[in-house]
């Protein structure tokens, strides 16, 4: 188990290094001179030179990469050119919206998809199964930001149960959660539909395995076989999908924030793009990639917890 974890940790570190190299190359190498890029074509040469100095662009590429990476490790993400404040501070603030939003949506996804998928698999071919399959087919096809807009029209504008957007801050947790409810539902709908279908088909696959027949020959009822034997084996493909879904949820959160005017990472990064604040874009993208890689690491560990075959093999 430990050996497996260490090996996964090793590949985690390699992924992080390569990801940071890719992002660094995209932002600081491909545009040529980031300083003149950020200032636009009308910039005065001395302003560009000043910015070059400020950004440390006169150092070699490898030195710049190293100082970027070591800076991030000590929590220093540089200073935003437009905001004139440390990037880490701004991101920290915004992260406290985007990350909880994605996590709430993930929770909702799992909470809805598991029972629905299990129900559809146990009652395969029944009207319950058919309606679940039909509903999830729709849920997958709905663009989540459009679904969010429809919910705003219904629940905020017409019924007035929720406000149409904005975020009151975490000082009042109840109000904060309320403000995140509609966005989280909009994010979760398509992912829950996908996960429910994966759960159903994974369960149906495991239910046709030989060991299910063995357990039935021991005297287990159909239901007992499902809960005691099929479910845990079905978790292996389901976990893979959950890992992938977290990255979709994080990316989706960036988009959904736009519908609800939420001050999260999404709005930050779009502003940064329009203001050509490369330092900000670079940091936000790296942070999101970091989060995705960490979640995949957690999923790898969860595999080993579910599947003893992975624990022995290092």
């Amino acid at each position: 188990m430990l050996r497996y974890a260490i090996k996964r940790l090793g590949s985690l570190v390699i992924s992080l290094i390569v990801a940071s190299l890719v992002i660094f190359a995209c932002i600081e190498v491909i545009p040529g001179d980031p300083a003149s890029f950020m200032l636009g074509i009308n910039a005065q040469p001395d302003t560009v030179a000043a910015l070059r100095e400020e950004l440390g662009l006169n150092a070699s590429l490898s030195a710049r990469y190293l100082s970027w990476v070591t800076g991030m490790m000590s929590g220093d993400f540089g200073t935003s050119y437009t905001y004139r404040t440390p990037v880490a501070e701004i991101i920290g603030e915004r992260l406290w919206l985007s990350l909880p939003l994605a996590l709430i949506a993930l929770g909702l996804t799992v909470l809805v998809a598991f029972p629905v998928g299990i129900l559809a698999a146990t009652k395969r071919g029944s009207w319950a199964d058919m309606s679940v399959m039909g509903a999830t087919q729709l849920g997958i096809a709905v663009p989540n930001f459009w679904f969010a807009m429809l919910m705003v029209v219904l629940f905020a504008i017409n019924l007035r149960w929720f406000s149409a957007g904005g975020f009151p801050g975490w000082e009042n947790p109840a109000a904060a959660l309320k403000a995140l409810t509609l966005p989280a539902i909009a994010l979760a709908l398509p992912q829950a539909s996908i996960l429910a279908r994966v759960m159903r088909s994974a369960l149906l696959d495991t239910l046709s395995e030989d060991y299910i027949r063995t357990s039935r020959a021991k005297g287990l009822t159909r239901r007992q076989s499902l809960w005691r034997h099929a479910l845990r084996n079905a978790m292996i493909p389901v976990l893979t999908i959950i890992g992938l879904q977290f990255s979709f949820l994080l990316a989706g959160a960036i988009i959904i924030e736009n519908v609800f005017y939420l001050p999260g990472l999404g709005r930050l990064v779009f502003q940064a793009i329009s203001q050509r604040d490369l330092i900000m874009v670079e940091s936000v993208v790296f942070l999101l990639v970091f989060a995705v890689i960490m979640v995949n690491f957690a999923v790898d560990l969860a595999y080993a917890w579910v599947d003893p075959r992975l624990r022995g093999r290092a």
Partner: peptide
Amino acid sequence: FQEPMTALNPVQ
């Protein structure tokens, strides 16, 4: 059963 390789639950 015939197939001992698949007749047992691999995670128990």
